[in-house]
Design a protein around this nucleic acid. Structure first.
Lengths: 148, 148
DNA sequence: CAATCTATGTCAGAATGCTGACATGAGTCA
DNA sequence: TGACTCATGTCAGCATTCTGACATAGATTG
């Protein structure tokens, strides 16, 4: 076919998109019964591992804009899963924290998501997983470096 | 930390999401000057390689719902990038075709996207790319098989 | 043959995320 | 010090995608 075209059948980019799409669908499937979206879960997981993250930092970690994360955070705060101080201790960034309720909610979701990840890695050796890790890191680095 | 948790720093699922996010951003960046979204481009590319695909088939190929693809297809048809017969030759599926205008529009986009993919693969050997292909296929298969 | 199932195209409404914009706080630098 | 740059939180409007629903065409099955 075209020399400068993109053969979807052999394109790593296309495959990456497909894998991401399937993973997202699988996560949504197990999170829906818990009344949680992927972004919702990502936010809680990020806060569990790095307490005190600001809205903007959470947004970057969940790969959405800070505006989108702000909408989510306000809902999570209203429903008692997360707390933020009234005033910023420094600058304008408001460090967010999980409440006990947030931690309980996350526990179930985290187990469910872990099961999905285990399923995804089924049939892959340790070495292959390590290779996958390195390769994905390489792709991310290459795209980011020359991005700006 | 938690035994049943998901360590974002070492999670292949998280890394996959990150890679997909960065790739999408890179594609949007090069497609925006052409007035084209990623789904828009995907639709044209699919039609170039597999002429006669129906709306539902295009939706599956671009990883969106058929409703979303229908909205896009109607716009593409209105603007003269794509044609569909009035009546379905068989069943209800309407086979879509690129117009010359659609092909011209695709040519530029395809080259731009290919450049992004080349950039993404920079620094990876042939063997690593083959490994990446196999690994992504494995993940997709594992998630899909046990999905239902 | 009739009933059922599956897949398709399409319409309508809702949810989600994004872009644009503004004010504010902190660091930088001349 | 004062101007500038940058990051942040937040509001408003818009775009895109999704879910739900319906009618229809073909395949399957009893």
């Amino acid at each position: 076919m075209s020399q400068d075209g993109v053969d979807l059948g052999t394109s790593l980019g296309y495959l990456l998109k497909e894998a991401s799409s399937v993973l997202r669908a699988a996560m949504e499937e197990v999170l829906r019964p818990l009344g949680m979206s992927v972004t919702h879960y990502s936010c809680l997981e990020l806060l569990a591992q790095r307490p005190g993250l600001s809205n903007s930092e959470l947004a970057r970690g969940a790969f959405v804009t800070r505006q989108s994360m702000n909408v989510l955070l306000q809902a999570l705060e209203r429903d008692g899963y997360v707390t933020r101080p009234e005033q910023a201790p420094v600058g304008k960034a408001l460090p967010a924290q999980l409440t006990p309720r947030g931690r309980r909610s996350l526990a179930k979701a985290s187990a469910a998501v872990r099961a999905v990840e285990v399923r995804m890695l089924a049939g892959m050796t340790e070495a292959e997983q390590a290779g996958a890790f390195r390769i994905l890191r390489s792709m991310i680095g290459s795209l980011r470096d020359d991005g700006a």
